[in-house]
């Protein structure tokens, strides 16, 4: 085909998503983060079957035994294998964080959409409430909620989700404001689109990219909140191993000289959150190239 004769209508415009994906894949640090996350996920899923020890079996002959060939990362105060518990803990910690972030994102999106597309007075009220919520430390909220009633896995997820929707809501509200000014939304309104279809078919998909950034970073924050709660014995029920629960006994373990009980679960948390944040940075740089972090 002669290059001169190409009909412009035949040339497929590169889709927005594909352009973003390509830009994201050029981000080197995001590569590292993605690779790290992949490794951690695979380890969490496959790891427990590869380790000879169970995460729950205690061995009173091997209390606080240091890292060795039989226990690669040592054992805890009940002689349970730390590596097995770390891998089992990865499943718990990551699923709690993921589920809590889904709760927070759904709630935040709904809140932001209602505020951004509803009547003006409702917008004012909702935004005042949002501002007031932002003045309360998230940790305070989750700890107070966890102080009431019995602790369960579902409750931890809901509590963390209910305490961390504010960022998503604010972003969704801003995006609504920006998109409602745009030509294509005007066209849709002229075409007789209802508020609901406007919100779901036009605003939400066009806000997806920046939302993805907030959600990604939110998962990392949820990991941190979960670990802090569980460390205080106010999080995941102590019968389940989570990274925070492994650290819950940290102080007394440390004073017994068992540094490995403190070091390794914490490292897992730091590495995981770091990887998530790297991916988040990469996404932010692709979505919003003007605000590149340049690292």
């Amino acid at each position: 085909m002669d290059i001169v004769n190409v009909n412009p209508a035949d040339v497929k415009p590169a889709s927005e998503m594909r352009r973003l994906l390509r830009a994201f894949l050029r981000h080197r640090l995001a590569h590292a983060g993605l690779l790290g996350l992949l490794l951690i996920t695979v380890a969490a899923l496959v790891g427990p079957t590869l380790v000879h020890h169970s995460a729950q079996t205690s061995n009173l002959d091997a209390i606080y035994s240091g890292p060795s060939w039989s226990h690669l990362l040592g054992t805890d105060q009940l002689g349970r294998d730390l590596l097995a518990r770390l891998l089992a803990g990865a499943q718990v910690s990551l699923s709690v964080a993921l589920a809590a972030t889904i709760v927070a994102s759904l709630l935040g999106c709904l809140y932001g959409l209602v505020a951004g597309m509803g009547p003006v007075w409702l917008d004012r009220v909702l935004m005042q409430f949002l501002d007031a919520m932002l003045a309360i430390p998230v940790l305070l909220l989750v700890i107070v909620s966890q102080a009431f009633g019995e602790s369960s896995l579902l409750k931890v997820i809901v509590v963390i989700g209910l305490a961390s929707w504010m960022g998503t809501a604010r972003l969704m509200r801003t995006e609504c404001g920006r998109l409602m000014q745009s030509e294509f939304i005007n066209a849709a309104i002229m075409g007789g689109a209802s508020r609901l279809s406007l919100a779901l078919r036009h605003v939400l998909p066009n806000a997806a990219a920046p939302l993805l950034v907030v959600v990604t970073v939110g998962i990392g924050q949820a990991v941190l909140i979960e670990s802090t709660l569980s460390f205080l014995n106010l999080g995941v029920p102590s019968t389940l191993p989570s990274w925070g629960n492994l650290l819950g006994n940290g102080m007394s373990s440390m004073l017994s000289g068992a540094w490995w009980v403190v070091l390794f679960p914490g490292l897992m948390i730091v590495v995981t959150v770091l990887c998530i944040n790297l991916v988040g940075d990469g996404l932010r740089d692709t979505v919003d190239p003007k605000r590149r972090t340049h690292l």
Binding site: L224, L247, G250, V262, G266, I269, V270, V273, N277
Partner: peptide
């Protein structure tokens, strides 16, 4: 700065005590 952002304060405190 990146590592600091990913570090839970309570764990760092435990390490410093250690």
């Amino acid at each position: 700065a990146l590592v600091s952002f990913a570090t839970p304060a309570f764990w760092l405190g435990l390490l410093l005590i250690l």
